[in-house]
């Protein structure tokens, strides 16, 4: 049976699909967070050099990766909305921005907490930290610009441009450790393999997956509110069961 995926690019059909998917993503995220924390704090051994402080990695790395992934997805949706004038793409971009900003904030916060015992400072103007801070400002700029324009379609277009231009910062964050001498170490996990202990890898990937599922659940919930708000004058909204309660 062939599924017509384009069917779900319309807010009308996507709204219902998102509603059905949210509980599954939310429950899976909660379970994976519990498993990830258990492996990270109980199973994974202590690091020979960093002691217990290294355990910040299980939230710091997934949060940093999520902040970059979400920005690229947001910019992708924004570009789709700008090129094809698709309503749902722009709504998705606006729904992703706050979650991406929070992941960037968590990344910076946990990085500062890790930096203090390891480097002796909460903050350094290191290339990776500075570019991650710029990413947070880009998210905030996207949210502020979108909120400052009353007409939602014009706001979508203006914010989309900012998102697309800002996407140049994501490869800068990723390659900063190669291009400049930074306090951050180079990539530990490569396609060729890793020197990390198996339990540490398991904890990190479980937490990363949990963060993904959490982000999807939250973004879908937010986009449903945006769809409701923007499509409030359409007949399909008035026919929704939650509107008849």
């Amino acid at each position: 049976m062939a599924i017509n995926w384009f069917k779900y690019s319309a807010p009308t059909t996507f709204y219902g699909l998102a509603g059905k998917l949210i509980p599954w993503f939310a429950i899976s995220a909660a379970i994976l967070f519990a498993i990830g924390l258990y492996i990270g704090f109980v199973v994974a051994p202590m690091d020979a050099q960093q002691g217990e402080f290294y355990r910040i990695i299980f939230i710091h790395v997934p949060a940093s990766m999520m902040s970059m992934f979400l920005y690229m997805i947001m910019a992708g949706y924004a570009a789709l909305g700008l090129i094809f004038n698709t309503r749902l793409s722009a709504m998705m971009a606006s729904a992703i921005a706050p979650t991406g900003a929070l992941f960037a904030l968590i990344s910076l916060w946990t990085g500062a907490l890790w930096g203090k015992p390891m480097w002796g400072a909460w903050w350094m103007w290191d290339a990776r930290m500075t570019s991650e801070l710029i990413l947070l400002f880009l998210y905030l700029g996207f949210i502020a610009l979108h909120a400052s324009i009353d007409d939602p379609r014009r706001a979508d277009r203006a914010a989309a441009l900012l998102a697309i231009i800002g996407s140049v910062n994501v490869p800068i964050i990723y390659f900063s450790v190669k291009w400049w001498n930074t306090l951050h170490q180079g990539a530990t996990i490569k396609f060729s393999g890793t020197s990390m202990h198996v339990a540490m890898q398991q904890a990190m990937f479980t937490m990363l997956l949990a963060c993904w599922l959490y982000a999807i659940a939250v973004v879908l919930t937010r986009v449903r509110s945006i769809i409701l708000e923007r499509e409030r004058n359409t007949t399909w909204i008035t026919e929704l069961p939650e509107m008849k309660r």
Binding site: L37, F41, G51, E52, F53, R55, I56, I59, H60, A63, P98, T99, L102, L105, I106, W109, T110, L113, W114, P117, Y214, V218
Partner: peptide, 22 residues
Amino acid sequence: NPLTYVWFGSYAVAMLIFAVEI
């Protein structure tokens, strides 16, 4: 108290941020 520092400083704050967002 490295574990308390890591747990409350990072994980509890991250969970709080997630709770506020939810």
